[in-house]
Amino acid sequence: MPTDVLDRELVHSGHVGCPGCGATIAMRFVLKALGEKTIMVLPACCWSVIAGPYPQSALKIPVLHAAFETGGATATGVRAALDMKGDTETTVLTWAGDGGTFDIGFQSLSGAVERDENFIYVCYDNEAYMNTGVQRSSSTPYGAWTTTTTGKDWKKLRKKNIVEALVAHRIPYAATASIAFPEDLLRKAQKAKNMKGSRFLHIYASCPTGWRIPSEMSIKIARMAVQTNIFPLYEVEEGLRYTINYRPKEYLVREYFRLQGRFKHLTEKDLDQIQQMVNEDWELLLRKAGEHV
């Protein structure tokens, strides 16, 4: 573990996250890396509730709750005002879910990154609209059941590749991270903190409620997503320099899918097809990282 991480907690135990909530674990680690001189912009997401109702707050940093689709824009204003007051030291952090990032907040995020606004944007990704009761988002993976993709209408479209969309903006720093790999997550959050311009962290955050898994499986499932190459750990600097941070051991996608209720309808043939898609994506990433033979 990095030694210069806060031993104090900036997430209090009174939060109202579900047992095993990956988003809560992600918050705890990121705030340890960023520290107390951080102002958070919090567009609508599970964390709008997890942080606790008025007049309480589970977070020991200033929080500005914001409209769903405004994560990038609200942070733009916070940064501008801090700069006008001569405060260039405070980190501005937008903390958003996958719906607020991939879907409704994508324009605002794209605008902010194109302007190279000086802030960190964290998307904690639980692959659906979990706060409203598990509806599909453009981050929901191929094969998944949600309450709006039920029965034979399970999602048959790929998950949007949000990191590559940001890389296309030539964002100074974009990285994936996982709650199951805390050293890697802390290092990336600290690295982001020490950079300028727009920085994006995409954190895989399991959701026992929405994924139909036991809460004690939260970390294991998140780890397997990395080990199967479903969610590779990598980082990209200046939209050009790729570094792959973790080399998986030949785990099969099948094992990850079979543990989760949201995928239980899939046939062996479906799983073979998904394995092929995951292999393709990994090959593509290797080529981008210049490692493909």
Binding site: I39, V41, L64, A66, A67, E69, T70, G72, A73, T74, A75, T76, G77, V78, R79, A80, A81, L82, M84, K85, Q107, S108, S110, G111, E114, R115
Partner: peptide
């Protein structure tokens, strides 16, 4: 701030004014 929409324009002012 040369924002990308009026919606983001007001969102940015909400952020700035809150500081």
């Amino acid at each position: 701030l040369r924002v990308e929409s009026e919606h983001s324009c007001m969102a940015a002012l909400i952020g700035a004014q809150s500081v």
